[in-house]
Design a protein around this nucleic acid. Structure first.
Lengths: 240, 240
DNA sequence: TCCTTTATGCGTACACCGTTTGCAGTTCAC
DNA sequence: GTGAACTGCAAACGGTGTACGCATAAAGGA
């Protein structure tokens, strides 16, 4: 194995010398993704993953230096699912495609939002998607600073939206209580907040929004918000 | 104590009957915040927090139903640090104040970004700040749907930026290795990525940006991006 | 060909984690 | 004054990430 303290992507999968490893990185990542999808990210422990793969827990450490490396593998694996826009697309279409693909990916793998947080994305799939996004923006003729600003801003919006979209769904999972109990407790509390009269606008929002947690409402809010963000850059771009 | 399965904010701090509790919620939250600031969120275990407070670990469960409730207390406590804009401020100023205050708060308490993720913010401080933000937007005359869209979009941008800003800083903390080792390993890897020639734009960014992780660069990127987001809504707002 | 080198896989152990339970002791309402 | 309600705590349970040492297997150089 390569010297310790290495970035995992810099480490050869197969060492030259000893017996052949019985697993591949892809197998490990895929099994971990399946486990996280089915039972939540907390279910992904080294022991449970090892069991799912039919090996001992300590064996996983031949493939991964720490659990954090495993999470990095997972994050990059699902990044491979986001379909790039056809090359040569209009900048708005390219960014829109990236953003919505990203959103849909996180919807399929809700844990990915939290796992990707506070971790530089350096895996091959992440780098590839980033490069494609840069290319689409570069085609507008923006200089490198503006390019970075646009991609950072869109990235922040997408990440932030994804995390807010997790919202209650993940909260009750963590709470360990039944969904029914959780919802009832929160309904009661929101009711008390509304009746306190101290939050008039919040009250209007709660009462107006027929179903504030309707996934469709969240999606359209994402799409509309994204268009506004793009609007904010359009002036700068279209004047060149 | 109130029936189990309750939202923590709906639970009275002091029960009527027995001996007086020796701690307050504020004391607990403050100690937890101090611990997280000093040693990272992972250092906030029920045992360590209890020790810091001079009580037994199991005693904390008299104040908090589960650790998740403790995190909720922490998230709301630091939310109390974000200073609201003076009432009657221009909408742009109000939103800008909220966003930068939020950003600075998260800079002081980096763990807050992750803790707030995927958790509805229902504590008194969070509700108060949300209400104030709504009020500032409401003053523009936007209808309730647009109001919600704007606040959601700004919220997503702020959250997302905060999380991206954590970036490497938290990554090496988690890695368990020395900062020097971590930085060197990553420098090597980035070098390899650049030299691969497969990522020309990423390469230009790496080479151009004199110090891509300069906190000042991150701050101005945040501020500029925010202005663009506000630009995106300005047309709609100013035409009324 | 053999033998040294270098891997792999695994059993075991360590220190810690969140949480539950039962019990002794304190305080308030009646 | 007495019983109900509450507090604080020690101990325990099942889980976690990870380090270590050993037997075994494959490859490279002699």
């Amino acid at each position: 194995m390569s010297p310790p303290g290495e970035v995992i992507w810099n480490r050869p999968e197969r060492a030259g010398r000893g017996p052949a490893p019985s697993l591949t990185r892809d197998q490990i990542a895929a099994a971990a993704v399946r486990l996280a999808d089915a039972e939540g990210i907390d279910a992904v422990s080294m022991r449970r993953l090892a069991t799912a793969l039919g090996v001992a827990a300590s064996s996983l450490y031949r493939y991964v230096e720490r659990k954090d490396d495993l999470l990095e593998l997972m994050a990059d694996a699902v990044m491979g699912e986001v379909e790039p826009a056809p090359p040569g697309s209009d900048w708005r279409l390219a960014i829109r495609t990236f953003a919505t693909e990203m959103r849909e990916m996180i919807q399929r793998h809700p844990w990915a939002a939290a796992v990707g947080a506070g971790r530089p994305s350096l895996g091959p799939n992440s780098l590839d998607r980033a490069e494609r996004l840069f290319a689409a923006i570069d085609a507008t003729g923006l200089d490198i600073d503006q390019l970075l600003l646009l991609s950072d801003t869109v990235g922040a919006f997408v990440r932030g939206s994804a995390i807010e979209a997790l919202g209650d769904e993940e909260a009750w999972r963590r709470s360990g209580r039944s969904r029914e109990q959780w919802m009832e407790a929160h309904r009661d509390y929101i009711g008390a907040v509304v009746e306190s009269g101290r939050y008039p606008l919040l009250t209007r929002i709660v009462l107006d929004a027929s179903s504030p947690h309707d996934p469709d409402r969240i999606r359209t809010s994402f799409e509309l918000g994204l268009e506004r963000v793009l609007d904010g850059f359009a002036a700068e771009i279209e004047k060149r």
